[in-house]
Design a protein around this nucleic acid. Sequence first.
DNA 1: CGATGACTTGAGGGAATTCAACCGTCGTGG
DNA 2: CCACGACGGTTGAATTCCCTCAAGTCATCG
Lengths: 251, 251
Amino acid sequence: MAVDLALERAVAMIRTISPNPNRANFGRCSACNVRSLSICGALDQADLAEFERIARHIHVTSNEALFTAGQIAHSVHNLTAGIARLYKLLPDGRRQIIGFALPGDFLGTAPSDRYGYSADAIGSVSVCRLSREAFTHFIAQRPHFLLRINEFAARELMLAQEQMLLLGRRTAEEKIASFLVGWRERLAHIGDERQTIALPMSRQDIADHLGLTIETVSRTLTRFEREKMLVIVAGGVRLLDATRATAMAAA
Amino acid sequence: MAVDLALERAVAMIRTISPNPNRANFGRCSACNVRSLSICGALDQADLAEFERIARHIHVTSNEALFTAGQIAHSVHNLTAGIARLYKLLPDGRRQIIGFALPGDFLGTAPSDRYGYSADAIGSVSVCRLSREAFTHFIAQRPHFLLRINEFAARELMLAQEQMLLLGRRTAEEKIASFLVGWRERLAHIGDERQTIALPMSRQDIADHLGLTIETVSRTLTRFEREKMLVIVAGGVRLLDATRATAMAAA
DNA sequence: CGATGACTTGAGGGAATTCAACCGTCGTGG
DNA sequence: CCACGACGGTTGAATTCCCTCAAGTCATCG
């Protein structure tokens, strides 16, 4: 039906920014459709060729792990398509999703030789995987690239700080509204600007991201719908009153 | 009395790692007692001289601001003595302390030209202040320095991720225990290893860091004391049962 | 179709907050 | 010298927001 078609298109949009990559160049960095969004945006043709030599394309399917917290961090990752869930677990199973990674996001900024969090796929995901060793060597002689990585780390840090404010000091209602508004912005940043906000992650994922339970997320969303702030559709929500949502999210 | 003397020594210890800087070299980077802990640890004598040329020493007293969220970020800061409170505010005054900065910490990793959070002094604080412009220029030609900054950003990010887990998924009891254990580790890292954990910040600060109220912090600490896990002393706590505290904090 | 999984909805409970009072210390000024 | 208020902290009682537990709906799929 129509709804599903729209959803499918939305998901496809997220998976790859431009849906028709040149087949001949498929897999080649120079034809990468998220290059400008990613750390690789700072590389010229020569650098890119070398980068490509040390990178490996990996595809993982839904709920498959990219890496797991505590493991030796042999690789760094560059998300090229799909969405990943980044999370930490407590021994008793409680989970905190520290973020969702979108195409262009870099997963490799870590202070130790072990992954500080786990990452797995929400739907099918493609990444560039590089051995940390090769990557370290690569950046060592390319200061401008390092600068770019630094910018990415800074942006990630800022998001983390926003999230701390949300987790520590916002009500459930504010958390949901902030999440929707922030998520919409991030989708817009990668080129997905539609009225309907795609929510490919589950309610449980949202709950674990906002420090809530699945029931509270569900209840709050349906209340927002009752109050005509949004409409819940398959795979996402359509924002009717963006002004009110933004006001609730007020930084 | 004895308690106050011990406290004073503790505070002095935090303020400056080595209490007797060479007077002749006072204020000189080469004599800086937190250099090895800070980003400047990656600089050689020549670099250090240049760094010193663009840095300015600033002292601020208790509760004075270093910078404020939203302002144009003209400067970056390097904490050399004392402790700073880093926080974000909501329009209605709710506050989230995103971290406490210790000597050696670098405050300058930001993706925009505006400060993403506010910083002010807990007790008296000394910082090296550099214009962002000069700093950017400085790092541009020193890749190894940039690498060091990157390591610092990565560590900060990891701390932020830990804090998200704490804020989103831990109980009040676990939050307090985790905070005490983590804080003790950080103090140890800068050379302050004593039985008594110095807590120079107020109960309100702790509450705003952990996403709790001041009453809950107070109640939980006194309960810990009743249960013989610790003793509350002026300016800090003395940990009696570190095993239990660590278990509560269990990552 | 029966089973399974994602989500919703309702009723009741509880952890932490809110509201309020109180305590001890410190600095100030009458 | 001490009365005083301000301030940081503690403690108690009542409230509330969100969680827990439980049931029910709906779509998907073997």
